[in-house]
Design a protein around this nucleic acid. Structure first.
Lengths: 278, 278
DNA sequence: CGTTCTATTGACTCGATTCAAACTAAGTGG
DNA sequence: CCACTTAGTTTGAATCGAGTCAATAGAACG
């Protein structure tokens, strides 16, 4: 574990649910009661090592979890031994709301890189939902947005070229991180291998490499070890046929505009290249 | 509109929610109160002509609907003018539960062939959910199963060959129909064009045609105008890498076994003649 | 300093797309 | 009843995007 990730981690643990709160608040508008209810949820902090499994197909869940730091991803294997990444979850995401109502897992959940999660028993969650109609509503919304993202992934995998798929995944990840206050400067901290990106985009590892190189050549991204910088947000969106509607970030008025601002300064700062004004 | 579909329709309208009830009951076990509550939902019957849109991207929904007869499908277009079918809904499905919590559509919903739906105002639905915890639970489950299906589609589009994709879609459709008492004999009444199947499987129309022919040659299916017969269920499942877990049909013990039975008798009865009577 | 994991490259192959044309079935109207 | 239309299916040929296999280059690690 690097010193940097330790530091990040320490920062986060101080206010475990801050990112979750921020999001729910923007989505549904929480009352003071709701906020304290969430803050007081009995939560066990758990550290996951890189790639460690959190749930496996067939498991019966008795807990939900909040991601405090790092990434979790869902994956499913095929009969022929391939795997597909189904969803990527970032800090502040509530993973496994669905197990409240469908406790048996039909896919795996793993950590991408090291991650810190807060584990909360189902019983507490159910009590919370019954007690607060507004939280109930907020969680419904979260679930529906998750479905919406799944649908966009279907479009991505079904209709777009390899280049567009990869660009799209990066755009989404970036915007979702910014929605919880991360990656403001368009630099994403990603512990992903290219093969992970490949399994998310449904293309081979080798081809992913070629696509990444092409995105680099186009000066749309810069990919260093452990972090990925978006060098040209507009261009990346165009390549990826990305439009943020499906994320339903209604509560984030200036987020997309922000992105363009940051993109411009990022380009000015880091590259000095002017390839696109579209 | 053919005489036959009129007849089917007439049958169905008599007990509008029977398929829905059947399903919810198996999923969650309904009380008598719940059953009457659902049966008494104020519902406007609406007939959709083939291909007619029910909702369009950007619409703000004030109703949910139950499919009484026929199929509805969700679709989304890309920037380059292609479209992807995101989900297929069959009789008994509750479409748009999500709009209760996320009223703005981020995709279109259309009828495949003619369809009959029951339209129910959001307000009535919300009242229902508040009044009955068990129905609330049942609808949560329905939503979660829908998500699970979306995830399987992601796997399908991301990792499987064209042949497998098409086979998989057919397997799923067949099993979901049987779960509401339709297509018992493995003959699916489908008003689909091959181009629809193509957009669901994320492959071109021409290639879909070749795949369909291959499935025919393998004696896995027989596809006549307006109906599709599964000639060899086991084979089709194998080709499509299909395993029904993700449908969470826990309440349907003998369904899959049934399928094999019906398959055998269906083959026995119909093998040889190609235009099967529904 | 070798071991190991990941990224990169090159050559070859193959599945799937595209374009274009022919064929079929089912209306439609004279 | 037949020519005309239209929608959908089927075929063929050419092309291309992406996969596979195999080897090399770097980076990280103990």
């Amino acid at each position: 574990m690097t010193a940097r990730s330790e530091q990040r981690r320490g920062m986060e643990i101080g206010r475990p649910c801050s990112r979750l709160l921020r999001r729910l608040d923007r989505i549904a508008g929480l009352s003071e009661t709701d906020r304290t209810a969430i803050a007081n949820l009995p939560m066990t902090i758990r550290y996951l090592s890189a790639g460690q499994g959190f749930a496996r197909t067939g498991d019966v869940a008795e807990h939900c979890c909040v991601i405090l730091d790092g990434y979790l991803y869902r994956q499913k294997g095929t009969g022929s031994g391939r795997r597909q990444i189904l969803a990527i979850h970032v800090a502040g995401d509530l993973v496994d709301l669905q197990t409240l109502h469908l406790p048996r897992f039909d896919h795996d959940i793993n950590a991408a890189g090291t991650a810190v999660i807060g584990v909360i028993p189902h019983s507490c969650f159910k009590a919370l939902l019954q007690a607060s109609p507004s939280l109930n509503e907020a969680f419904w919304r979260e679930s529906m947005v998750e479905s919406s993202i799944l649908r966009e992934w279907i479009v991505n995998l079904g209709q777009r070229s390899a280049l567009a798929r990869v660009a799209h995944v990066i755009c989404e990840l970036s915007l979702r991180l910014r929605a919880v206050g991360l990656a403001r400067d368009l630099v994403l901290n990603i512990p992903w291998k290219q093969s992970d990106l490949a399994d998310a985009a449904g293309i081979s590892t080798v081809h992913t490499n070629r696509v990444v190189q092409e995105l680099r050549t186009m000066k749309a991204i810069a990919w260093g070890p452990g972090n990925l910088q978006i060098a040209n947000w507009d261009l990346l969106c165009e390549i990826g046929d990305f439009s943020p509607d499906y994320l339903h970030l209604d509560g984030y008025p200036a987020l997309v505009a922000d992105a363009q601002q940051s993109a411009k300064s990022a380009i000015a700062e880091h590259l000095g290249d002017r390839r696109v004004s579209a």
